[in-house]
């Protein structure tokens, strides 16, 4: 049996709790007494700041390329989820199944995070010129929607395969796919002013770190497959 114990709040915090609501909508509860200091470059003097100046320094911006990157990456990630959905009933390799499950879960949750990032900034979550199905009719099925993705023909081949052939196509396809994501990050960062939003910067680092780890892991699996 589990008993639910609910702590109300630490002793002494009653006053703070009472002001909590107003703080969250813009009324400082008390003025900060401690000095607020902005150091200069190495060797330079620091300067004293007001609270407002400090908060102002925390403002960051993003550029159009950042938003476009997120819109594209949502589509790119979506294919990794689609590839993962094909594993069931096609692969008998436990390592491949685990890898695919993890990649699909991860990319699914990153898609949600990217959508939130765009929505909170009033940006569309759709990639320009890509509205789901109705662009397919004018596309060459041998050409992926963007570099670093599988083409419709390659996706069909993956769906039609099974066993070791599926594992091979999945691993080689996903390595290409992950490398595409890292290339997209590097391309974005080569543009002046890109990637400066801290949330985006953190996400870019996570993409590079996670996906390069996974690429090497998948290359290792391929090497074992012979």
């Amino acid at each position: 049996m589990q008993i639910k114990l609910v702590r109300s709040r630490a002793i002494g915090l009653g006053m703070l709790a009472a002001t909590a609501l107003s703080v969250s909508v813009g009324q400082p509860a008390f003025a900060q007494q401690a000095p607020i200091v902005q150091p200069g470059a190495p060797g330079e003097n620091s300067r004293a700041l007001t609270r407002e100046q400090s908060l102002e320094l925390g403002q960051s911006s993003y550029i159009e390329a950042d938003a476009r990157f997120m819109q594209h990456m949502i589509v790119h990630h979506g294919q990794a989820v689609d590839m993962g959905a094909l594993v069931e009933g096609r692969s008998r390799n436990e390592g491949v199944r685990l890898m695919a499950e993890r990649i699909a879960l991860t990319q699914e949750s990153e898609i949600a995070m990217m959508r939130t990032w765009l929505t909170r900034r009033g940006e569309s979550t759709e990639m320009q010129g890509h509205h789901g199905h109705h662009m397919n009719h004018q596309m060459d099925p041998n050409v992926p929607i963007m570099p670093g993705m599988l083409s419709p023909v390659q996706m069909d081949a993956l769906a039609a395969s099974s066993g070791a052939e599926f594992d091979y196509l999945y691993l080689t396809g996903m390595i290409l796919h992950h490398q595409g994501a890292i290339d997209m990050v590097n391309e974005l960062l080569s543009q002046p002013g890109a990637g400066e939003d801290p949330e985006l910067s953190e996400f870019l680092s996570a993409v590079v770190a996670d996906q390069s780890t996974e690429i090497l892991r998948m290359q290792n699996m391929l090497a074992r497959q012979g």
């Binding site: 630490a10 703070l16 709790a17 909590a20 609501l21 703080v23 969250s24 609270r51």
Partner: peptide, 24 residues
């Protein structure tokens, strides 16, 4: 909640919660 979220604890006691300083 921001400052009024429900809390549970087991064999540990929150003795003080210092808010993030105003400048931050």
């Amino acid at each position: 909640g921001l400052y009024d979220a429900e809390e549970v604890s087991w064999n540990v006691e929150l003795v003080h919660a210092e808010r993030t300083p105003e400048a931050f």
